[in-house]
């Protein structure tokens, strides 16, 4: 087994007071089919201009955009019911010496923003429910069933079903 490190994520609104307003990024979170080796602020809305195509496939409303000369085709989907998207950042631990704030002793995260929908983009293929990204949401339902406590009723059903098979 791989060993995990200790850490914490505070999801109650960030900041020390825990009551600050959290930025809502609905309609602004994009998942691109590439890695951009850049980390920092960027005038995204001035350059990245998604447009609706007016087409709908499998209930997905198609959008298109261009990035680095490539045409992207995407769709905006809601985060499944009961879940929420979070943008988390490393918590700043007061005025300690920089040397102390190594990754080991500051594995403490806080929520900077939330989002309830996400636009994911494909290069060269129309968005569809066969996309790995949309299929990954299947896990949520599977996990729910797997972790749900087994009730006496379920056992009864299962044994009846087994009885029928025999």
């Amino acid at each position: 087994m791989e060993k995990g490190t200790q850490g914490s994520i505070i999801l109650n609104g960030g900041g020390d007071l825990g009551s600050q307003e959290v930025a809502d990024l609905n309609g602004q979170v994009h998942l691109l089919p590439c890695v951009i080796k850049y980390d920092g602020p960027c005038s995204v809305s001035d350059y990245f201009k998604p447009k609706s195509t007016g087409m709908e496939v499998e209930g997905l409303r198609l959008e298109e955009a261009h990035f680095r000369g490539r045409k992207l085709e995407g769709a905006t989907v809601s985060i499944p019911e009961g879940y929420c998207g979070f943008v988390v950042g490393k918590k700043v631990l007061g005025k300690r010496k920089a040397a102390d704030i190594s990754e080991e002793n500051s594995n403490c995260w806080e929520m900077n923003a939330i989002f309830r929908d996400i636009t994911y983009w494909n290069h060269d293929s129309l968005p569809s429910h066969d996309d790995a990204f949309l299929r990954s949401f299947h896990w949520l339902a599977v996990a729910k069933s797997m972790h749900k406590p087994v009730a006496a009723e379920d056992l009864a059903h299962a044994s009846t079903a087994l009885g029928k098979m025999e």
Partner: peptide, 14 residues
């Protein structure tokens, strides 16, 4: 296969 097809991976270090 379920996870492979969905490109899901468990993250133990965070």
């Amino acid at each position: 296969k379920f996870f492979q097809a969905r490109k899901l991976e468990q993250l133990t270090y965070f």
